[in-house]
Simulated assay, not measured.
Amino acid sequence: MNDIYFDHAATTPMLKEVIKAMEPFYNQSFANPASSHLSGQKAAAALEDARELVAELVGAQKAEEIVFTAGGTEADNLAIKGVAMALSKKGKHIITSKIEHHAVLKSCEYLEKHLGFDISYLNVDQNGLVDIEELKNEIREDTILISIMLANNEIGTIQPIKELAAVASQNDILFHTDAVQAAGQLKIEIDDLGVDLLSLSAHKFNGPKGIGALFVRRGVELIPQISGGSQERKRRAGTANLAAAVGMGKAAEIAVKNLEKKRKKLISLRDYFIIQLQDSFNNLKINGPESDSRLPANINVSFRELDAESILFNLSLSNIAAATGSACASGSLSVSHVLKAINLEDEYLKGAIRFSLGKGNTREEIDFVIDKLKEIINRLNSLK
């Protein structure tokens, strides 16, 4: 069997339509969108067309509320640091959760260490869900921002963002959500969610790497985190990555068009995979919530008293790609902060593997992986 790629949460393959849309902007319509000549104006028009498509992906009413960035990490940094610096005179308290992506956690850590902010980290239950009552209890007079991710990158937990954002709104607090994993898998409507800022990354929904976006609701104050020119309506300096923005726009357009069909396929494959795993192994635990509250593409499992790195190494020998959790944390020998936060039992902590599904995956591939896993797990168990 050909290579099997079950690591779409880390990155996805670019669609042919996306590559085709990008090509002219490398050597034909390559002008700087900030230039005033005709070629620059054409480039600027293409950039704004891409912005419109990204706005449609999240249901934003105005394309100008979309700020292009170099990816989801920059979008998170711009949202958290940008708002914090803009509103520091109003207050220096931020609320987030213990299972956020490191782009959020490290941004909060930076504000705490260098600018004197106070950060409250919400607990989560065994399924990774934030408790609304705890959020209400953590709110203070000086709270200026709440940041809770829409869907978790490791265990797939979908948070009740609409309810959480309503609490923020009732207390006149801005709300940011990291929707990097959710885009392309879940229908996102900004006004329904009620959020003020939302982060995206193109390469998570079959677009190019190196391009992302931040939705910034009109009227939200934000201090730019990159100094220079007045690009992106003075919110993000630097010459626009035009080809990548066009690619993101095309990927967003396709994601909107195919969302329901893709979602149903992924849910069917995910549930089939989980059933096969449960039927095949008695030393296995499914990490995260039930199907209704889990991302369609996410399966996170732990094998009791086994080492995930050993399992992944053996899977890779059969050309099977999976992950231990967040790609941004790969290479780190520390136990996942997400699994710690859900209080996963010690015997399961080091044996956690994330399989994430996407375009082109099939039941036949799942069956092949299950067979290989049986061989690997049996061999590793025999060595204990």
Rank of each mutant, 00 (worst) to 15 (best):
A31Q: 06
D196W: 01
V67I: 14
S35D: 14
I299K: 04
I267D: 04
D7F: 12
K42H: 12
R236E: 09
I80S: 12
I158C: 02
F30W: 10
K42V: 07
S280W: 07
S336V: 11
I211F: 05
D178W: 02
K42W: 11
D367S: 13
Y110T: 14
E345R: 15
A321N: 15
E109H: 12
K113D: 12
E163W: 01
V18C: 07
R51V: 01
F313H: 15
A308H: 09
D307N: 11
A322Q: 10
L53M: 15
K264I: 13
N137M: 09
N343E: 14
L333N: 13
D292S: 12
V180W: 05
E64A: 05
D49C: 15
I99N: 04
A103R: 06
S293A: 14
I342L: 11
M85Y: 13
D196C: 07
G331I: 04
S199I: 03
A21Y: 00
N381G: 13
F30V: 08
R235A: 12
A352V: 09
G288D: 06
I139H: 05
T12G: 05
A252E: 03
S280H: 03
K204L: 07
S293E: 14
R233K: 08
E141G: 06
K372Q: 14
S147I: 04
G91A: 08
S291A: 13
E347H: 13
N361V: 14
G72H: 04
G360T: 10
Y348K: 11
Y5L: 13
E17W: 05
K106F: 12
A103W: 03
I275S: 15
D7L: 13
S35N: 15
I119R: 03
S382A: 13
G351T: 07
V256A: 04
M149W: 00
R294D: 00
L222Q: 03
K106T: 13
G212F: 00
H176D: 09
V369H: 09
I299M: 09
K265A: 10
K89Y: 11
F25K: 03
M14N: 05
K262Q: 14
Y5V: 09
F368A: 13
E365L: 07
S318T: 06
H8R: 04
P160R: 07
D279L: 12
G331P: 08
L111D: 00
G116N: 06
S302A: 11
V83Y: 01
L339S: 14
E163D: 10
